[in-house]
Design a protein around this nucleic acid. Structure first.
Length: 485
RNA sequence: AGCGGUAUCGUCUAGGGGUCAGGAUAGCAGAUUCUCAUUCUGUUGACACGGGUUCAAAUCCCGUUACCGCCGCCA
């Protein structure tokens, strides 16, 4: 009988949630969803110096924003808590002692200097460093001596030399010669467990059945399997994902720009687009629809179909995808998300209705929400700068168009967008017929006067949002510019 | 140095002994629109290299190269 699937994500709160961690979380989440399993969140905060509560909060918030909700974790609890590693410190020594008692581990009294020396020797002889095992069989007298010197022992795992093979869910069969590993520390001399030991104990106790993580952990895997075996515990399945690389093929880091999910959000990326994009790094849908929600992806997800190679994080496709999500998102929700990016403007000038209208007519060209800032200044304030369109407004054509525009628009209904749209069409037709002005020339004059620009959103929408007074006064400003010049 | 992993258009990928090597994105060209953009249509572009195995190799095997990762009392 197959155990119920339990997977986990175990971020360490020494920074905001990294996009790579988000992808790992996603694949774990997808696997849990697909198999009806449980998704566990564990916070690995054993490094007290680098841990900050703000990072823990950021991890929670980011994961939630991405839609990766966990079934068990520090906040929601669960049967196998605590889910914060620092609250589990009393657990590890017991198991370490058990391994010592059974002869799977031993105390090591070597100082850092001694260890350093061994490593230097190895480097000098062009050999891989493997711990010498000199503490494996120390006499009681030596031990007595070390204690007298005030030394504190670490505990090393005694690595059995053999060929270790496991079947990786994404990479296939992986083989290791454990004689190359060397006895590694499981408990530091300060009493804290090392990473490799703590994860195994935690994963074992939390009954994790499948460990899906980045391939930077591949070489930890044989060590961890050895510990499982020594403990007499069932070894979980492992699956190692390729890494996300920056465009220069190096590790994605601050110098490449955004790395944390919250950074991307600040840049104006939608979390839905982000998680969708990141899913496509290594996974591809069986149909040809790439735009999918996490739950839709889960339906179609097969862990063994994940690409096992690294992939490069390029913005081209993310930008496109973000634009797609912006275009199809609910206007009210989109408006809420866009408001923080409009801090340069006095939003009290616009009713919520008009604000949403503005978002509706300006969303199309956006690749990120941040872009909206430069596309909307003319919706605010009374006047508009004409520096960019001075020459255009100075033409006879513009004067002609604007004169007529003021005359006609005065009697337009500024609450009926559809009607304004038609009025504008008639307006263009009139000038085309009477003066042979191209429709776009006619509109350029109007647009220039009302917005100070030659390009932008739908004119009917703009006119409606601006309202009669501003439309007429700006049209007059545009017209008078010629006289002044 | 050693050990492990990976190699298909610029990028993300599909495919997998016989395919015009498919799609997406980016690029380019055209169409539509009041502008920009969107959208639509078309188009450029790839099996790392060398040996095998085979009637047939991008696909299987070996080697080389490149890249990534790991070699901590970090996680």
């Amino acid at each position: 009988m197959q155990d119920k699937v339990r997977v986990r994500i175990a971020p360490s709160p020494s920074g905001n949630l990294h996009i790579g961690t988000a992808r790992t979380a996603l694949f774990n989440y997808l696997y849990a969803k697909k198999t009806g399993g449980t998704f566990v969140l564990r916070i690995e905060d054993t490094d007290a110096l680098r841990t900050e509560q703000a990072y823990v909060d950021n991890i929670f918030d980011s994961l939630k924003a991405l839609g990766l909700n966990w079934d068990e974790g520090p906040d929601v609890g669960g049967e196998y808590g605590p889910y914060t590693q620092s609250k589990r410190f009393d657990i590890y020594p017991k198991y370490a002692q058990m391994l010592v008692d059974k002869g799977y581990a031993y105390e090591c009294w070597c100082t850092n200097e001694e260890l350093e020396h061994e490593k230097e020797e190895a480097v000098k002889n062009h050999k891989a460093y493997v711990y010498s095992r000199k503490c494996l069989n120390i006499t009681p007298e030596q031990k007595e001596q070390y204690i007298k010197e005030g030394r504190k022992p670490s505990i090393r795992f005694k690595v059995e030399h053999k060929e270790l093979v496991f079947n990786d869910m994404v990479k296939g069969e992986l083989k290791f010669d454990t004689s190359l590993i060397g006895d590694f520390v499981i408990m530091k001399s300060n009493g804290a467990p090392t990473y490799n030991f703590a994860v195994v104990i935690d994963d074992m106790l939390m009954k994790i059945t499948h460990i899906i993580r980045g391939e930077d952990h591949i070489s930890n895997t044989p060590k961890q399997i050895l510990i499982y075996e020594a403990l007499g515990a069932k070894v979980p399945e492992f699956g190692h994902l390729g890494m996300i690389l920056a465009p220069d093929r190096s590790k994605l880091s601050k110098r490449h720009g955004a790395t944390a999910v919250s950074d991307f959000v600040k840049e104006g990326y939608l979390t839905d687009a982000l998680i969708n994009f990141v899913a496509l790094l290594g996974w591809s849908p069986s149909d040809s629809h790439e735009i999918k929600t996490v739950d839709e992806i889960a339906q179609d997800f097969r862990i063994n179909e994940i690409s096992s190679s690294n992939s490069i994080f390029e913005y081209d496709k993310l930008n496109w995808m973000n634009g797609q999500y912006i275009k199809k998102m609910d206007i009210s929700k989109l408006t809420d998300l866009i408001i923080p990016f409009l801090s340069d403007y006095d939003l009290s000038e616009l009713s919520r209705e008009k604000l949403e209208k503005m978002v509706e007519i300006t969303r199309e060209p956006l690749t990120t929400l941040k872009d909206i800032k430069d596309d909307v200044p003319y919706f605010f304030g009374q006047k508009v700068p004409y520096d960019e369109v001075k020459d255009l407004l100075g033409t006879e054509l513009s004067r002609n168009v604007l004169t007529k525009f003021i005359e006609l628009a005065t009697s337009w209904d500024f609450c009926d967008e559809e009607k304004i749209h038609n009025d504008l069409a008639d307006f263009r037709a009139y000038f085309k017929e009477k003066y042979s002005y191209k429709p776009k020339e006619t509109m350029w004059a109007v647009r220039a006067a009302l917005t100070g620009r030659t390009k932008g959103a739908d004119m009917a929408g703009i006119i409606m949002i601006l309202g009669k007074d501003r439309v007429i006064s700006r049209a007059k400003d545009g017209l008078n510019l010629k006289i002044g010049a």
